Amino acid sequence: MTSHVPAPPPFAAGSPTATDFTSGPALYIASAAAEIPPGLPLADAVRDGLIPEENAKVTGMSTVSVADESTSLFDLVTAAASSAVSRAGLPATDIGAVLFANVFPYTRPRLYNMATGIAEAVGAPVAFATELSGGCVASINALVLAALRMLHSQERAALVVAGDVWRQPHIDRFNTEVGYIFADGAAAVVLSREAGFARLISAATLTDPNLSGIHAEVPSDRTPVDITARARAFLTTRMGTDQVLPRLRGGLRATLDAVLAPAGVDLADVDHVLVPAIGEPFLYRNYLDPLGIPISRTTWDHSAVTGHTGGADQFSALSYLVDQGRCKSGDTILMISEGLGFQWSVAVLRVE
């Protein structure tokens, strides 16, 4: 493990970078699909000693998606990608780029470009295939990069896939951090120049490098990743919560303001807010209470039976909205993601 290195005094965070996608050729979300393994009841996890009962209750969740040992990450992501391509109603040969977003590296093939494997699985002779990480923000980052690429190329479509599998001894999905339960799963969207169910309106991102140490590796007495120990070390040696919380809330608010301005909508007018699938207390603390968002405008009913699938959360929630018939023409969808570092990436869609 790396040794703790004191950080220099914090500097002011920069300004969000926003892109108005309405100023150029229209780009659409042609489809969204998810591959979510069966849910393990948290009551069973408590019974089996996998998580303390108190910690399970704190999450507000009832089940968590857990893939069986014979199911690989590649199985999940290719299934989600294939479903998204099939739903898009366009030939796979139209896909000029595949981008794959992944958070946890230990349960995936080593020295292998998953994006090229996904392209092969769906039959897309792509010119560009790459992977992104950086935490749970990677999927929205990948969507934005795919969109920017399409604006400067002749490619007709792009496939963006996100997925993760969390397994011991590398991570303890139930006890990495109180209030979070990591879930296995994958989700994908197809971005197209042709008509889709929603148009990409805008996107914005902001990074505050002063907060990178929140997730920096520190000595721990446990083998699986210990997020709590990392945060505790940062809060006791670098910045206190009186500094960190305003930066976190200010960064999110600034990014939201930046993405909503090109869309010409206020947060109060957004119909669906897709946030990370975190435990209920964090949901209220991080998003609902400070932003004034009622839980009815989120997909908490979906999150509560899946868990946190990493970067796949937003695409999975989008697929859920569509599958449940909860979107109508004119609806505005806001996808919010946060990632290691600390970074915020958000995107606005408008249902056609």
Rank of each mutant, 00 (worst) to 15 (best):
G135D: 02
F128V: 15
V122F: 00
Y106Q: 14
R167A: 11
I140L: 15
H170S: 14
G163T: 11
I95C: 03
P169C: 02
H152L: 05
N102A: 13
W166K: 05
A121Q: 00
R149S: 06
R156D: 05
M114F: 03
L132E: 05
I140P: 07
A146K: 06
G96I: 11
P109Y: 01
A146P: 02
V160C: 09
H170D: 15
N175R: 15
N175E: 10
L99P: 00
E155N: 11
L148S: 09
A162P: 03
L99W: 01
G123W: 03
A101L: 10
A147S: 09
A97C: 14
P109R: 14
S133R: 10
L99A: 07
Q168T: 13
E177H: 13
N102Y: 04
V98M: 11
L148G: 10
A129H: 00
F128A: 13
N113S: 12
T130R: 12
E120H: 13
A101W: 06
A101D: 00
P169T: 08
V144G: 06
A115S: 06
A147N: 06
N175F: 09
R173H: 08
R173N: 04
F128L: 12
L159V: 08
A127Q: 12
L111Q: 13
T176L: 13
N113E: 01
N175D: 14
Q168I: 04
N175S: 12
A119N: 05
N113C: 10
M150I: 00
D164T: 04
L145Q: 15
G123T: 06
A158C: 05
A146F: 07
R108N: 07
A101H: 09
F104V: 13
L143E: 06
N113I: 08
A138I: 13
Y106P: 02
E155K: 09
L151H: 13
T176G: 15
V161P: 01
E155P: 02
T176H: 11
V122M: 01
I95H: 07
I171L: 15
Y106L: 09
R149Y: 09
A158K: 05
V126I: 03
V98P: 07
E177T: 08
A115P: 08
A121I: 01
V165F: 06
M114N: 15
A127L: 12
N102R: 15
